[in-house]
């Protein structure tokens, strides 16, 4: 797949990389949420998590189809999702973190992501890239709903019993080190910001931080100290978890290439 990308101009290459980051975040988190199907604590929540997963998968399809067109190598959404190896995946590390059969982990991961995703999609409404702006206009409605949902659960669990409070605080302390990557600038992000295609990552921080503070205050949770932040996912350096996700997600297309429903 990398051989074909040589035909892209540097601008196209940067846009392609950027689209993969957006699309991979959605695909991987969608998969993690999908793992709750039949396992959530209550039936309504089972349905809710899968609904969020479905929205993200739909967003990923729109983005990946576009990415395939930008790349111009004949890869459709399925080829990009099912035939790329882990080191070609560009998602942030936060979304690949495992559920650990712990609902608090799923909610904290979702909340930290949603609060960022909401600001990102809102900013993308102003994208100079009309296609990306149209996808964002669709996505932001869904993401607003996601953020409302995960925020409500943060409050319910945080301001709930000592057991639920303890679990969600522990999950927050544990996942906080993956929040820094969301706001990291690198050559791809800088180029997108300069072209007016995407927001500068750091420009999203203040609003994200405010949402986090407001919800944590209502949830009676403490905001963890910013310490060492893990990063690398957006450049293909993942933890061990992504490989297991891909092994399951890609099995069918790897074993039976071009199999159709």
């Amino acid at each position: 797949m990398t051989a074909d990308t040589e035909k892209m101009t540097p601008e196209q290459q940067a846009l392609f990389d950027y689209l993969l980051r957006l699309g991979d975040n959605a695909v991987v988190l969608s998969h993690r949420l999908g793992e709750w199907c039949g396992h959530a604590p209550v039936l309504e929540e089972d349905i809710a998590l899968i609904n969020v997963a479905l929205d993200l998968l739909g967003q990923a399809r729109s983005i990946m189809t576009y990415a395939g067109e930008v790349e111009g190598a004949g890869h459709d959404e399925d080829a990009l999702v099912y035939r790329r190896d882990g080191f070609d995946y560009r998602n942030v590390l936060l979304v690949e973190q495992p559920n650990e059969e712990n609902f608090a982990v799923a909610i904290v991961r979702q909340f930290l992501f949603d609060a960022w995703h909401y600001e990102l999609q809102t900013a993308l409404l102003q994208s100079s890239d009309a296609r990306l702006a149209a996808i964002a206009a669709k996505s932001v409605k869904e993401v607003t709903y996601h953020l409302r949902h995960s925020s409500e659960w943060m409050v319910r669990l945080g301001d709930g019993t000592s057991e639920s409070h303890g679990r969600v605080q522990e999950a927050l302390d544990d996942l906080w080190r993956f929040s820094g990557e969301l706001f990291e600038a690198d050559a791809v992000e800088e180029r997108m910001a300069a072209a007016g295609i995407g927001p500068h990552p750091q420009s999203l921080y203040a609003a994200w931080s405010e949402t986090v503070d407001r919800v944590l205050a209502e949830a009676t949770l403490s905001r963890p100290e910013d310490g060492w932040m893990q990063s690398g996912g957006r450049n293909g350096r993942h933890g061990e978890h992504l490989g297991f996700i891909l092994a399951e997600m890609q099995f069918l297309q790897r074993a039976y290439p071009d199999a159709r429903w």
């Binding site: 809710a48 609904n51 929205d55 909401y118 932001v140 409605k141 607003t144 709903y145 925020s151």
Partner: peptide, 30 residues
């Protein structure tokens, strides 16, 4: 686009009462 405290007033399609409550923000379809 309201993020918090934006519960709409929903009328029961069966009896017309406004005394309704949300059970889950997500249902059988998207």
């Amino acid at each position: 686009r309201a993020l918090f405290g934006a519960e709409p007033e929903v009328t029961c399609p069966h009896c017309g009462s406004k005394e309704t409550e949300q059970v889950s923000a997500f249902g059988s379809t998207a």
